[in-house]
Amino acid sequence: MFEKLEILQMASAMASHAAARQAVVSQNIANADTPGYAARELPKFSELYRSEAAAPLRATRAGHVGGGETIRATASPRTDPGATSPDGNAVSLEEEMVKAVEVRRQHDLALAIYRSSLTVLRSAIGRG
């Protein structure tokens, strides 16, 4: 019953997106000395969530699995890589550290939304 609530689905998707972004940031930092490595990034959560919510998948027969439960995105090379080093590496450790802080904030926000929603639900059933 509660897994169908839109706010909980959004919070879960936001936390998953933050985890995926953190993995991409970690890969970028790990490859900061790799010659020719292009920094990668994921699209913003708001862009992905809007696109998923606008055109959800639908099951056309009984064997299909319903879509829209998770947001999936693939990391792509950064469109504006900025300065590159002489060996062709486009990773800026300073930018990646700033992105790591943004990801942490996104994850904390997702948990806060989830926590607040649970508090509202507990109050609604008289256990808050």
Rank of each mutant, 00 (worst) to 15 (best):
G36F: 05
A39P: 00
I29F: 00
S123T: 13
P81I: 01
Q27H: 03
L42Y: 00
N31W: 00
V65T: 15
E52P: 01
E3D: 14
K44I: 10
N31C: 04
S85F: 15
E96W: 02
R78Q: 03
T119N: 07
E52Q: 12
R72L: 12
A30R: 00
E69Q: 15
A73T: 10
V120W: 09
S46W: 08
T70R: 13
S76M: 10
L93Q: 13
D80E: 12
P56F: 08
K99P: 02
A15D: 08
I71T: 12
N28F: 01
V101E: 07
N28G: 02
M14F: 04
G63Q: 15
A75I: 00
A75W: 01
E96L: 09
G82Y: 07
R127S: 07
G63I: 13
A18S: 04
L111I: 04
T60P: 06
E47H: 08
R72M: 13
A15V: 04
Y114R: 07
A32Y: 00
P86V: 02
A62K: 15
F45Q: 06
H107A: 06
P35G: 02
M97L: 10
A13F: 04
K4P: 04
I113M: 12
R58W: 07
V24D: 00
L109G: 06
G126M: 04
G36D: 01
K4Q: 15
R105N: 11
H17A: 06
A18K: 05
R127I: 07
G126D: 00
E47R: 09
E102G: 06
L8M: 13
L111E: 06
S46R: 13
R122Y: 05
L48K: 08
H17Q: 05
S26D: 03
L118A: 07
